[in-house]
Design a protein around this nucleic acid. Sequence first.
RNA 1: GCCGCGUUGGUCAAGGGGUUAAGACGCCUCCCUUUCACGGAGGAAUCACGGGUUCGAAUCCCGUACGUGGUACCA
Length: 509
Amino acid sequence: MRFAPSPTGGLHLGGVRTALYNYLFAKKHKGDFVLRIEDTDQARYVEGAEQYIIDSLTWCGILPDEGPHKEGDYKPYRQSERKFFYKEYAEELVQMGHAYYAFDTPEEIEALREKLKAQGKSNLQYGHQIRLEMKNSLSLSKEETQTLINSGLPFVIRIKINRDEFVSFNDMIRGDIQMDTNGVDDKVLLKADGMPTYHLAVVVDDYLMKITHAFRGEEWLASAPVHILLWKYLGWERQMPKWAHFPLILKPDGNGKLSKRDGERLGFPVFAVGWTDPVSKDLMKGFKELGFLPEAFINMLAMLGWNAGTEQELFSIEELVENFSIERIHSSGAKFDFEKAKWFNHEWIKKFDDNRLIPEIKKIFTENKIVIDDENRFKKIIALVKDRCTLLTDFWDQCYFFFVAPEKIDTVSILPKWNDSKNLFFIELINACKLSNAWTGTELEHTFKEIASMHRIKPGELLLPFRIMLVGAKYGPGVFDIASLLGKQETLKRIQHTLSLLSVAKSQG
RNA sequence: GCCGCGUUGGUCAAGGGGUUAAGACGCCUCCCUUUCACGGAGGAAUCACGGGUUCGAAUCCCGUACGUGGUACCA
């Protein structure tokens, strides 16, 4: 079994999911997963896109067995490098009478379209209705056609679709589908520049690469009849792959399929890894940069349109492979929910083994120019905050203060209830700590409470100021745990620092 | 317009003739925690509408509405 999704350009959510489902199905059935690159459309294909696709899939952990970066038995895998094949087959179709040369320029067709529109007629379809009124090898004589070709006039090759024909096929997700050919026009197969359109390219590639399953997004469903007719006309019907059209991933706020712009508009990533828009040059962050674990990303993506039919929601890639079945893919689109995506990541962080997690977190600290010298201490800190981190980047916010003193101390939250006796309490706490040799959380807590009761202050009233002294704000794990990992010297230093801050604030009224 | 595909809480969804119509995210309440989270216990909220078929319909059929895709020398 061979599977080949054909992603293009900036691979976003939908594209990654198509690749993922292909991968899961391929691996489940011990088949090959092939990566093909669509670079047929020079206008939209951008420099670096191929590497980007490979990088995205690599991060996701769904590496192809064959493809442009690895090669294999059916190379080349770039459509631009397979130009020769397509032309050959297109010509063959013309010889057999299933396709024809068309000399109409895009401008002429556009003009006709405008004209019809002005008359209030529906959209122009270059098909059986009008093909004989156009300039092509069907309306022209053989000699005229040959003369035009010889003159070097650009032409395209279009498929000749008969009217009143029914095309039926089986979709592994949707079941039997039947469409008549009246709605489909004579699609261009080979463009004037000699490059194939997707319609010709997939069919030829799937045939030549012996692809057994053609799985793609639902946006292709409407043109499936063209592809099926092509398989038939080329005489390859017996080798035609099985079809499946995946549901679309929709915008969270309704109307339409998720697009690259939606991420920016609604504040979530639509790419697996960061993507630089070729036109605007804007760097759009991906799930990776936002602090997602690839495992969580894949898990989330897989569940958007498929489920195992059990209550299990957390799946490793191996479990996905094991449980995957095409029949359980839904036939209707799903709206993307970023909150749920974050939930998946949170679950994966909790689930993740420290040996895998720590290096990822370290990267973030390195980016923030923090050197981790005490491995053991780092581990303890991570264990302490792990539960409260949804994204990898949260680890920075949750524990940077263990490494650098907070710049801003939220004295505003302390001040209203601050008084001399509390001030005295902290001074005595400092002294008591200085005298003691040991430094553990429990011991500190004991001393803390003892001094508090001596001063007849409820510990609760002192805990918040203490936290703010150490952390700078009202968050973080247990204060005594923080203090113990901070070390005696640093803890006392921070108390002292805030104390002086408070006295200044107090004297200024 | 035409042609496909679809429609179970706000979202992801299970269920495919008889169910008190699962579960998850989010939201709300309470408990735990002398912060914030985590965790725990609860709660509100759903079968698009109208006709059939049937003893019985979320489930099957037909309409309607709505959504969505396609209708390019884009993929």
